[in-house]
């Protein structure tokens, strides 16, 4: 896996470098003492994994995550435990390492990132290779079985940590993938992200009340930032 290290402390960068040395699968492409230089680098080059310090003056680790255009796997490195909960808001964060980082804990995190990366690559391959010539369906890998889903059968997609739950008219499917990946596959004219954890098929909406949508039998929250886009999509009288 090609990786970069972002940490404002040289001490930490040297330590992470040394921890990487013991793992043949890792290749460090660059190190950065600030997140802005790392963003510039990632706008030019792709990497598989980022070791990211959260606490950096000015532009911190979470600012970096929000600016990212690509979605490499992220391993957070920090002296604080109090950001762990926030880390779960990001689909591409695979682990959270508290400094000083031990070799065992580091290795475990990298193996987790590798496993996830391999699995997503495999999911992507099966989805891409089996995409029909038509634009109205996709295939998803469910336990090694490629299942065809018509877009007009899909009610919603919900993020579930490292997985996504796809609810259709007849069945629900949990697959190992990310919201970002599925969003790229769904037609933008009928699907809309209404909340960071929900993408819905707008043609299936039954009603909308305050900050929620009734879709099928599901009540889905609508975040304030996505509400206006949802309202634009509706044929309002």
């Amino acid at each position: 896996m090609e990786c970069i290290i972002i940490d404002d402390e040289k001490t930490s960068r040297i330590i992470i470098n040394q921890l990487c040395e013991s793992l043949d699968s890792l290749e460090i492409k660059a190190e950065f003492s600030n997140a802005i230089d790392a963003i510039k680098y990632l706008n030019k080059y792709e990497v598989d994994l980022v070791f990211l310090d959260i606490h950096m003056p000015g532009f911190n680790g979470f600012d970096f995550l929000q600016t990212l255009k690509t979605s490499p796997k992220i391993i957070l490195t920090t002296s604080d435990t109090n950001y762990a909960l926030k880390a779960f808001e990001y689909d591409n964060i695979v682990d959270y390492l508290v400094k000083p980082i031990t070799q065992d804990r580091f290795t475990k995190a990298v193996l987790k990132a590798e496993a996830l990366s391999d699995s997503i690559k495999s999911d992507e391959l099966s989805v891409q290779s089996k995409l029909n010539s038509g634009d109205d369906e996709l295939f998803v890998n469910i336990n090694g079985r490629l299942v065809k889903l018509r877009f007009d059968e899909i009610i919603l997609v919900e993020a579930k940590g490292d997985y996504i739950l796809i609810k259709t008219d007849n069945e629900n499917f949990t697959i190992h993938s990310t919201m970002k990946k599925i969003e790229e596959k769904l037609p933008v004219n009928s699907f809309l992200k209404v909340h960071r954890s929900f993408v819905i098929n707008t043609s299936k909406i039954i009603d909308i009340e305050n900050n929620s949508v009734l879709i099928g039998k599901n009540v889905v929250p609508v975040s304030r930032s996505n509400r206006s886009e949802l309202m634009k999509r509706l044929n309002l009288l």
Partner: peptide
Amino acid sequence: AIIVHKLRNKISILGLYKGSEIAK
């Protein structure tokens, strides 16, 4: 406080665990 945060990492690396808690 920002500098204390950086120092905290070194305090831990050099084995002062109670010191690290105080720094936090």
